[in-house]
Structures are given as C-alpha cells and as structure tokens.
C-alpha cells in the first residue's frame, strides 16, 4: 500500500515490476490516497506526504501479531517477515503450548513454556542457536 493511485500502480507493475517477477505482482497493490489508512496505522509521514516502510503481520482472526517500521532508505528483510509468520503459525497450531526462541526457524526446536522450564532454558537452548 502506498499513496500512489491504482493507475500508477499499474504502470509500475506493467513497466518495471513484471520484469523482476514473472507474471507481475501476484497480490493486490493497494492505493491509499491522502494516507487515510496509513494515518490509522501510524505509518503516514505528514511532512513528506508519504508512508513509511511499515509491515504488519495480521493473523486469521484479524489480530496484529507484529509490526516493523523503517524510514524510506532502508529496505526490508522479506525472509525475516516470512520467518516470523512461520513462527506465529507454529505457536498458533500448538494453541500456545509451544513458543519459538530467539533464532528459531522452521525445523529448529521450540520451547514448551511451563513450570518445568523455569530456570532450565539454558539446558535446551544454547546461545549459538540464536545465530546458526
């Protein structure tokens, strides 16, 4: 979503993005003239008249589980956004019985929060797992 019109979205997709992604952008390119939605989401910069690089993870209930906001010159890490969605999906599928520690990615071990884990995280999670 940006403040550009759908017409500009079309030109950008048809003339540039479709050369990067085969078939063009597969998801809706949303138009937010005047930043009306961006204001509500706290990403609209009144002075510049544009929206920051805000990214919101919204679960199947419509609940915001995470967000990130960057000023325009720095691009996002898409892989990290995907990893976060995967982590939230694991937590949700376990109905909250599992949690994903720092550095978790699909295939790595989760934690089962509860009385038995208090003071014992060091036994099952090593610092290096945050980085590998």
């Amino acid at each position: 979503m940006s403040i550009d019109s759908v017409f500009v979205h079309k030109m950008w997709n048809d003339n540039e993005l479709s050369k990067m992604v085969q078939g063009g952008v597969p998801f809706p390119m949303l138009s937010d003239g005047g930043g009306r939605v961006g204001k509500v989401y706290g990403v609209y910069d009144e002075d510049a008249g544009v929206e920051m690089r805000g990214r919101f993870i919204i679960d199947p209930e419509g609940v915001i589980q995470g967000y990130e906001m960057l000023t325009p010159p720095v691009g996002r890490n898409i892989q990290e956004s995907i990893r976060q969605v995967q982590a939230f999906q694991v937590v949700r599928d376990s109905k909250g019985a599992e949690a994903t520690p720092s550095g978790w990615r699909p295939g790595k071990t989760t934690l089962k929060p509860g009385p038995d884990l208090v003071g014992k995280v060091w036994e099952v999670w090593k610092t290096g797992m945050a980085f590998d």
């Binding site: 979503m1 690089r53 805000g54 919101f56 919204i58 199947p60 419509g62 325009p72």
Partner: peptide, 16 residues
C-alpha cells in the same frame, strides 16, 4: 482476509 494470514506492507511510493 479473515481466516488467512496477512502481511500488510506500506512503502513510500511507486518507482522508489
């Protein structure tokens, strides 16, 4: 989109 996971992304402008 209720029932699905959504990534809602804002960005400064087309052709940036």
């Amino acid at each position: 989109y209720l029932g699905k996971w959504v990534l809602l992304c804002f960005y400064p402008g087309d052709f940036t």
